[in-house]
């Protein structure tokens, strides 16, 4: 087999540049294998985050030829042959070194999500039906690779939005809780006010890059937007609430943690 040419971003917060590595191609390899071979030979200090190498942990997110991909799930033979392969770190987050970026933003945003709030457990356990759990299970497939956060232009291209935008990863978390058959909370105002749902312009890049093929936009973000419409923008629903004397929870109420 022929050679593969890799253009790998090397650098830290002081700047960086592409470094070229040429290695013999090997059958069945993924990009992460090639990075590991570079580490084992030419560049032992090439920084790259990874864990399971089976697409289950979501650690090795980076950008291959400019597109967010998991290094461990991108086979070399799927990339254009004969062209150098460009590997850069996730663009939306601050760089730590080489291919590793600081993803704290995502963990900060996760801390703001009010936890699941079920009713007290009945004697013989909770009952839920498969059709109900399946809705949430789709979102719980998320491996937290944060590529949806990375590709989302709301923060990728607008640093100033980071403080007030939860991002697709957390929107599916909100959606999962809002669709949980046992949850008793109402986070609709919270997701509108504090999580910045309105900033999403549904351009669907999050869905395009999701390695778990979660339909983030269609099954989580748009349903959330519609639920926010129910709560805030629908005069008929408003009238209905008035007549039936139902209330929705304020963001403050919704954010109270269980126990």
């Amino acid at each position: 087999m022929s050679d593969v040419v890799m253009h790998v971003w090397r650098g830290d917060s002081n700047g960086g540049d592409f470094e070229e590595y040429t290695l013999p191609a090997q059958e069945g390899e993924v990009v992460l294998d090639v990075i590991h071979r570079i580490q084992a030979t030419e560049a032992p200090d090439l920084a790259c985050r990874w864990n399971c190498k089976a697409g289950k942990c979501g650690s090795c997110s980076a950008e291959i030829n400019g597109k967010p991909r998991l290094l461990c799930m991108t086979r070399m033979d799927q990339l254009p042959e004969g062209e150098p392969v460009t590997v850069t770190p996730m663009r939306a987050f601050p760089i730590i070194r080489d291919l590793v970026s600081d993803v704290s933003y995502n963990y900060e945003m996760a801390r703001k999500v009010p936890a699941f709030l079920p009713p007290p457990r009945p004697e013989d356990g909770y009952r839920m039906s498969q059709i109900d759990v399946e809705r949430g299970q789709e979102f719980r497939k998320c491996i937290e690779c944060f590529m949806c956060q990375n590709v989302c232009h709301v923060i990728r291209d607008h640093e100033e939005n980071k403080g007030k935008f939860a991002g697709p990863r957390l929107f599916i978390r909100y959606a999962e809780l809002e669709m949980h058959p046992l949850d008793t909370n109402d986070r609709r105002d919270l997701v509108r006010d504090k999580a910045g749902l309105g900033m999403c312009n549904i351009t669907k890049c999050c869905t395009e890059v999701c390695p778990e093929h979660i339909k983030i936009t269609d099954n989580a973000i748009i349903p959330l937007k519609e639920r926010v419409v129910d709560a805030d923008f629908d005069p008929v629903a408003w009238l209905g609430r008035k007549i039936l004397r139902r209330t929705k929870r304020t963001p403050q109420e919704a954010s109270v943690q269980p126990e």
Binding site: D12, D45, A47, C48, I96, R97, D98, V100
Partner: peptide, 11 residues
């Protein structure tokens, strides 16, 4: 090992 201490997988 070569390089610095920051995120140095070799080290």
């Amino acid at each position: 090992v070569k390089g610095g201490r920051a995120y140095n997988p070799g080290w």
